[in-house]
């Protein structure tokens, strides 16, 4: 979707903060950050962040569009909400992180092969197809995401768990061939389409189904 990215670049020029405020879920909170850093220290994934939330907010204000949208950091958020409950300014940091990730994804700027992003896409595709998650198919898609050999390796490592699940009747190999879905699949698709339309209208995008990588 390079198009959308160019459109947005054009529209907001140097004002990345405004772009975030208008396009990102809860983006209008970014300006309220007072740079105390409690979110950065509170994050359970802390040591792995390249840019802490507070820093991302500062980068947004400083207009570092490219760096922010291509960052891995917001994809690390596990929604533990530690940062949010501690934020002295009550910023919905978790939501902003997800909003930024989603926006970066939409613009096609999110890092390639970002595991969280890949997983999310696989999950979405899997569950929206029939209205239910097909665990077997999903597991296989995730395992084989990085190629055949690495997929086999992963399966081998976790073989005992698979066996356990099978005997506990939590894993049905037949599901590989026959996915059972929800009752009104068309209804679900219509609902999703409607949701897409609503969001696109709110954010000013051209309507496009999401979940499919460019």
């Amino acid at each position: 979707m390079g198009d959308l990215n160019t459109q947005m670049l054009d529209k907001y020029r140097n004002n990345f903060l405004r772009e975030v405020e208008e396009k990102v879920d809860d983006g209008d909170w970014v300006k309220m950050c007072m740079q105390c850093g409690v979110c950065a220290g509170s994050c359970t994934f802390g040591p792995d962040w390249e840019h802490t939330p507070q820093k991302i907010f500062m980068m947004i204000r400083a207009g570092k569009r490219e760096e922010v949208l291509t960052s891995h950091s917001m994809w690390l958020c596990t929604s533990c909400y530690n940062c949010m409950v501690r934020c002295p300014r009550k910023l919905p940091i978790t939501h902003i992180m997800h909003g930024l990730a989603s926006y970066a994804h939409r613009l096609g700027l999110a890092p390639k092969n970002q595991p969280t992003r890949d997983f999310s896409m696989i999950f979405w595709e899997n569950c929206t197809k029939t209205g239910r998650v097909n665990e077997l198919k999903m597991t296989i898609s995730v395992y084989f995401r990085e190629g055949f050999v690495s997929g086999i390796k992963k399966m081998w490592t976790l073989r005992n768990i698979g066996r356990g699940l099978f005997f506990a009747k939590r894993l049905n190999p037949l599901e590989l061939f026959v996915s059972h879905g929800c009752k009104d699949k068309d209804g679900l698709r219509r609902a999703l389409k409607k949701a897409d339309e609503i969001e696109a209208r709110r954010r000013g995008y051209a309507v496009q189904p999401r979940g499919y990588s460019s």
């Binding site: 740079q35 850093g37 409690v38 950065a40 802390g46 820093k55």
Partner: peptide, 11 residues
């Protein structure tokens, strides 16, 4: 004490 020094980025 756990946290992040916000001047630069030092955990």
């Amino acid at each position: 004490l756990h946290g992040v020094d916000t001047e630069g980025y030092h955990r």
